[in-house]
Design a protein around this nucleic acid. Structure first.
Lengths: 198, 198
DNA sequence: GTCTATAAGCGGATAGAC
DNA sequence: GTCTATCCGCTTATAGAC
C-alpha cells in the first residue's frame, strides 16, 4: 500500500499525544511495521516528517469550516453552523487539536506564520466578517478569538474537566457544547433561559 | 544566596519556554552559574526538579484569585474582580500559563489530579458558586470553564493573535481583555453597547 | 525500498577529589 | 556543595548489502 501515507498518519498520532521529542524515528517506524532507516527513503529528516504530518492532518479541516459558514442563511444561523462544525471537527479528531496546541506553544515565529497563512487565516476572516455583521459596534477581533476559545478550550480540557466539580459526561458531546456556546453568545451568562431561545 | 531558589526560578523559565525535553540539566545549571552535577545536591533527579519548579511558580497564584473573589460585594462585582485578577496574573507571568498548558497537554492522569487538587480546585469551585448565584438555571460547570477559556485563551494566543486580521496592541492589555470578557458575559455578542453598561 | 551495521553526539546520572 | 571525569543508553542519520 502507500507507505508514505501510513507513515504520516501514524506519526501524527504519536506526535500529537507525546510531543516531538518524546517520539523517536524508531517509534514511528515501529508503528508502521518497518525499520527506522527506511523512513529516510520518504522524508529527508525528522523535522520534515513532523511538518508534513501536521499538514496531512489539518488538510481539509479549514475547507469544512468554510463550507459551514458559507451560503445565504441569516448570520446567526451561519454562526451556529460554524460553531457546531468547529466543535464536531475537533471532538472527533482531538489529535489534530493537540498538534495545533503544540505548535502554538513551541512554534517559532516563522512556523506560526506559515500555519496561519495556510490554515487559520481564512476561517478566522470568515468569522470576523460574520461578527461584524452581527455586532457592528463591537471589537470583531476580540470576539472572534473568544468564539474560538469557547469551543476549543472545552475540547482541549477534556482530560481536566472530569476532575473538576460539576462535570457531567454530556459536556463532552459536541452538540451540547455548541448549544452552550451559542446560548452564551446570544445573551450572555444570565439572561438566557436554560433552553436557547430563538 | 539561596541556590535552590535560584535553580527553581531559572528552571521554570526554561521549562516553560522550551518544554521538558528541550531543557537539559546542563542548560539549567548554566543559567544559575554552576555545573550540572551540583543540581543533584538539591534535587534527586530531573523529574523532581521539574515538578518542584512548577509548584514554585504556581505558589500564591491561587491565593490571589481567592482574595479577588472574596468579600460581601455583589456577585457581578466579584466576578469582574475575578476576571480582572485572572487576566492580570497570567499577562504578567505568561511562563506560568505555559507551564500549565504543557502539563495539561502532557500530564498523565495522576499528575493532572495532583495539579487539580493543589491549584485548580479552589478557584474553580469559587467561580462555580458565583455563577450559580448569577444564573441559577444554567449549567455552572460549562459556564465556569467558559469564563476561564475566554480569559486564558486570549493570553495563550499572544503569539498568534498579532498574525490574525483585526489585531491591535491594546488587545494585550489585561484590563482591555477583562472588560471585553465581562461585557460578553453580561449580554452576549450583540446586545451590549461598545462601552460596557452597568 | 528495506534491511543490518555503525557512526557521532547528546542526554541523565554517578564517583570521588577538594 | 561544587567541581572534573566518566559511564552508558538512546538519538538522529548514513553506508552499503540485498
Amino acid at each position: 500500500m502507500d507507505t508514505r501515507h501510513n507513515i504520516l498518519t501514524a506519526a501524527a498520532v504519536l506526535f500529537a499525544r507525546n510531543g516531538y521529542d518524546k517520539v523517536s524515528m524508531r517509534d514511528i517506524a515501529g508503528a508502521v511495521g518497518i525499520r527506522a532507516p527506511a523512513l529516510y527513503n520518504h522524508f529527508p529528516d525528522k523535522e520534515h516528517l513532523y511538518l508534513e504530518s501536521i499538514a496531512h492532518v489539518l488538510q481539509g479541516k479549514a475547507e469544512a469550516l468554510a463550507r459551514a459558514i458559507a451560503g445565504a442563511a441569516p448570520a446567526w444561523t451561519r454562526l451556529e453552523r460554524y460553531v457546531a462544525c468547529l466543535a464536531r471537527i475537533f471532538t472527533e479528531d482531538p489529535d489534530a487539536l493537540r498538534l495545533i496546541q503544540r505548535e502554538v506553544l513551541n512554534g517559532d515565529d516563522a512556523r506560526l506564520r506559515t500555519l496561519t497563512d495556510q490554515v487559520f487565516q481564512t476561517p478566522f476572516q470568515d468569522m470576523l466578517d460574520l461578527i461584524q455583521e452581527l455586532g457592528p459596534g463591537r471589537d470583531a477581533h476580540l470576539l472572534a478569538i473568544s468564539v474560538m476559545a469557547l469551543v476549543l478550550d472545552h475540547i482541549e480540557l477534556a482530560c481536566l474537566r472530569p476532575l473538576l466539580p460539576g462535570y457531567r459526561p454530556e459536556h463532552d458531546d459536541p452538540e451540547v457544547l455548541a448549544r452552550h456556546v451559542c446560548t452564551l453568545l446570544r445573551a450572555g451568562l444570565v439572561d438566557a433561559a436554560p433552553s436557547a431561545p430563538r
